[in-house]
Computed example of a mutant assay.
Amino acid sequence: MRQIALLGMCMIAGIGFMAWVVRPESAISATTEENNVGVKSTTRKTDLNLATAQELSKLPGIGIELAERIVRQRPYRKLDELISKKVLGRKQFARIKGRIRVSSVP
């Protein structure tokens, strides 16, 4: 009798383990989407025409002096004007171009 009870408990534990390991695809997608929502909200792009020098200085490789130079050369119509106006070099621009944007110029 003990052997049957032990066998039953092992089967129940095994089924529970399999249900945990083999999750439905929808559960995996939902978890992934929930994780991505948090990531998207924290990676907002910095607007070159609206950001303060302090906000711009938080970009990688951009100190306060370079941020002030970006502010002085406003307005920007396109991102690559940072290079054409000689505000940034190509390597500096490549480092931050995925984190910046340009709003419409008033």
Rank of each mutant, 00 (worst) to 15 (best):
L48K: 11
Q54P: 00
G61A: 03
V71W: 06
T32I: 14
I70Y: 11
V71Y: 00
P60F: 01
L66G: 09
L79M: 09
P75T: 01
R69T: 12
I62D: 07
R74D: 02
I62W: 03
T42M: 13
Q73I: 00
A53P: 02
S57D: 06
L56I: 05
T42D: 03
P60D: 13
A53Q: 06
I83R: 02
A67V: 05
Q54A: 15
E34L: 15
G61K: 08
L56C: 03
A51W: 04
S57Q: 02
T46C: 05
E34Q: 13
L50R: 13
R44Q: 15
I70G: 07
L48G: 10
I70P: 05
L79V: 04
G63N: 09
I62L: 02
K78S: 09
I83V: 14
K45M: 14
G61L: 08
E55W: 05
D80R: 06
K45Q: 15
L50A: 13
V39Q: 13
V71E: 05
T43D: 06
E65M: 04
R44I: 11
S57P: 04
L82E: 04
T43E: 06
S41Y: 06
S84W: 01
E34V: 12
N49L: 08
R77P: 00
Q73R: 02
K58E: 09
S84C: 05
K58C: 00
G38S: 14
Y76A: 06
N49Q: 10
Y76H: 05
L50Q: 15
D47P: 10
T42Y: 00
G38M: 09
D47I: 11
S57G: 04
L50M: 12
L79Y: 01
Y76V: 04
